[in-house]
Design a binder for these strands. Structure first.
Lengths: 133, 133
DNA sequence: TGTTCTGTTCTATACATACTAGAACAGTGC
DNA sequence: GCACTGTTCTAGTATGTATAGAACAGAACA
């Protein structure tokens, strides 16, 4: 199974699929050119409707991470080595980073601890790994 | 005006209020003990329904950042100097950090650039400032 | 005491989103 | 022809968002 979702979570399924694919690309388990399961196949594997998978794939396509066509199916379009991000990405991402870091600081987390947590996450991406606990 | 929201955004209003309060605490514009406007007053200021403000305040209360009662109104309960975060905070926060950083890495952002962006955000919290552009 | 403010808790409605479901179409490869 | 792919419709239910009105209980103040 390439990814798993929690059907009982309050996070929408299509967004969970998006997040898992994004994390898989960051971890290197999916590289540029890697094929993904077809929408119908993944829907069967996850026990959900194929329209939900279609929505997740379309979201990834609009974010520039996936290339979709009838010929080759769903293929990863970018990874960590694909060069600098597209223009409209950085601004929105930094705003979300600001909100997330503010949450930690407001809860009393030290600045150095925040940076250390970021480094730890980035290191886990750089380290090849087949399965996460 | 202590905070502003974008009524045309696709981000729910109650979540925007939550985010702005969290950021204000992180920036030091709101400290432990600082009073917030009453739900009805803030609703009038923002031109929205007071139930929406009530939802945002209740969310902040459940996250441990606000103390609500009839006596003192809405008061900030934690800030950057209130000690280590509560137990159930860290795990969930790190998962969201992982997803957000994965998004940047997958789009081709360099690891050092990510850390630099985090440092920049944290520095902007530490620097006293009345108004952000 | 009476008034006014506060948070809190109900019901109700309109609208958008999330998810499921079925069907059909147009390319592609066998 | 057949089986697969992504794509695009319609349609239904369930949940979430934001609105609105009403009422209650506790606290502050004249």
């Amino acid at each position: 199974m390439i990814l798993s979702v929690d059907l009982t979570s309050d996070v929408p399924i299509y967004q969970q699929i998006r997040d898992r694919v994004v994390e898989a690309i960051a971890e290197g388990r999916l590289a540029e050119g890697s094929p993904l399961p077809s929408t119908r196949q993944l829907a069967v594997d996850l026990g959900i409707n194929f329209h939900t998978v279609n929505k997740a794939y379309d979201l990834l396509r609009r974010q520039g991470l996936l290339r979709l066509n009838r010929k080759s199916g769903a293929v990863v379009r970018r990874d960590a080595g694909s060069g600098p991000p597209e223009a409209d990405f950085t601004g929105d991402w930094q705003a979300r980073l600001r909100t997330l870091l503010a949450e930690a600081v407001a809860h009393g987390v030290d600045g150095d601890t925040v940076v250390a947590a970021c480094r730890e996450v980035l290191a886990s991406f750089a380290t090849p790994q087949e399965q996460r606990p």
